[in-house]
C-alpha cells in the first residue's frame, strides 16, 4: 500500500459530499460506478466460488434441513422421517431397508465384559461389526479395535492395532477396545448441541441427523471409540444390512459422528450384539446388570475384573477379566 491521493489529510474534492449528493459530482459518480461494478463482479465471483455448495440443496431436502432433535420427534414425525430415510437409502445405495426405533427395555441396564484369557485376536468381532453396522467398506471401518499387547505390560504404549500375522502369538495377549458406554461419558458432556446422550439402558447414542460434525466428542473420548464420517460411506447394495435402527446401524450421513451402540436394534429385541455372536472363542459376555442371574453379573461377582483408564472417572459399563 502506498500513500494515495485520497489520504485523509488531503481529501479529494467531494470526498465527504459524495454519499450525500453523488449525482452532482462527476468524479464521484465515476468512482461510484466503478465501485458498484467491482462489488457486482466480486459478488458474482463469490457466488461462483461457492457453487459446489449447490450439492446441499440437492442432497439435503427441506424436511431433512428442518428436522428436529430425536427427542422432540413425535411418533408421527418419526414415521415420516424413517420413510424419508428409507427412500433415500433406496435411491443412493439401491437397497430396500427398514428403519426401526427400538426403545430401551424398562429396568434393563446393559454391560459387556471380555475374557482377556480367551480372546486370541482373531478379529472376527471387527468383521461382524463392519457388516452388521453398515460401515464404510472402503476403509474397513469398525467400532472395535483389537490391541495386540506384549505380555508383562498393560501399557498400551507397547500395544499394536495393526498386527498382520497368525494369531495368537506366544508372547502376546489381546485387548479389544470399543465404546465403554461410560456412566460418566466425557463425549456427552462435550457435545455442544446434545446430539449424543446416554439412554436409560446405559447405551450412549448419536442422532446422526442432529450432529453438526464438530468432533469435540471425538477429542473428549479417552478410548478412541468414536468415528467420523469423513465422506459418504460406500456399501454395495447386496451388502447393506436391511434391518436398521435410527439410533444405531442405519447408513450414516456424511459429516456426522458415529460410535458403538451395543447393537441396540438387536439387543433391545433380545438378541446378542453382532460382535458377541461372531466371537469364536467365547471371550465376550454381554447382558443385563440389573438381572442377578445374568452371565455378566456372574462375571462381575466371581472374576477379577478391571476397567480401562479407571483413574479418569468415566465409570465404564465395559469390563475386562482374566480366567
Amino acid at each position: 500500500m502506498t500513500t494515495d491521493n485520497t489520504s485523509p489529510q488531503e481529501p479529494h474534492d467531494g470526498e465527504y459530499l459524495k454519499p450525500l449528493l453523488p449525482i452532482l459530482d462527476q468524479h464521484s459518480t465515476r468512482r461510484t460506478l466503478l465501485k458498484t461494478a467491482g462489488a457486482a463482479l466480486g459478488l458474482a465471483a463469490f457466488g461462483e466460488a461457492l457453487s459446489p455448495l449447490m450439492v446441499i440443496p440437492e442432497n439435503v431436502s427441506v424436511d431433512e434441513f428442518l428436522q428436529q432433535h430425536y427427542k422432540e420427534l413425535t411418533d408421527e414425525d418419526k414415521k415420516k422421517v424413517f420413510a424419508r430415510l428409507e427412500a433415500e437409502t433406496k435411491e443412493r445405495f439401491g437397497a430396500d431397508v427398514t428403519i426401526t426405533d427400538s426403545k430401551p427395555i424398562p429396568g434393563v441396564r446393559f454391560a459387556y465384559a471380555i475374557n482377556v484369557s480367551k480372546c486370541n485376536g482373531n478379529g472376527k468381532c471387527m468383521e461382524a461389526c463392519n457388516k452388521e453396522n453398515n460401515h464404510h467398506r472402503g476403509v474397513d471401518q469398525s467400532y472395535i479395535r483389537v490391541l495386540e499387547m506384549t505380555k508383562g505390560s498393560m501399557d498400551m504404549e507397547n500395544g499394536s492395532t495393526t498386527y498382520d500375522h497368525t494369531v495368537p502369538q506366544d508372547d502376546k495377549f489381546y485387548l479389544p477396545v470399543q465404546c465403554q458406554q461410560c456412566d460418566n461419558p466425557p463425549c456427552v458432556s462435550a457435545c455442544p448441541i446434545e446430539a449424543t446422550w446416554k439412554e436409560d439402558d446405559g447405551i450412549v447414542v448419536v442422532d446422526y441427523n442432529w450432529c453438526i460434525g464438530c468432533r469435540y466428542c471425538e477429542a473428549a473420548c479417552p478410548y478412541h471409540a468414536r468415528r467420523f464420517n469423513w465422506e459418504l460411506p460406500e456399501i454395495p447394495a447386496e451388502e447393506v444390512n436391511p434391518n436398521q435402527g435410527y439410533l444405531s446401524n442405519r447408513i450414516r450421513p456424511q459429516g456426522a459422528m458415529e460410535k458403538c451402540h451395543f447393537c441396540l436394534h438387536r439387543t433391545r429385541e433380545g438378541r446378542a450384539p453382532a460382535c458377541q455372536e461372531a466371537c469364536p472363542t467365547g471371550a465376550r459376555v454381554f447382558g443385563d446388570l440389573n438381572d442377578p442371574d445374568s452371565a455378566i453379573n456372574y462375571v462381575l461377582k466371581n472374576k477379577r475384573v478391571f476397567v480401562l483408564k479407571e483413574e479418569l472417572g468415566t465409570k465404564p459399563s465395559f469390563f475386562y477379566f482374566f480366567d
Partner: peptide, 14 residues
C-alpha cells in the same frame, strides 16, 4: 470453526 464443521448446513442447531 465453521469450516471445521462436518455439517455446516446444520449450524442452526447451535
Amino acid at each position: 470453526v465453521l469450516v471445521d464443521l462436518g455439517r455446516p448446513d446444520r449450524f442452526w442447531h447451535l
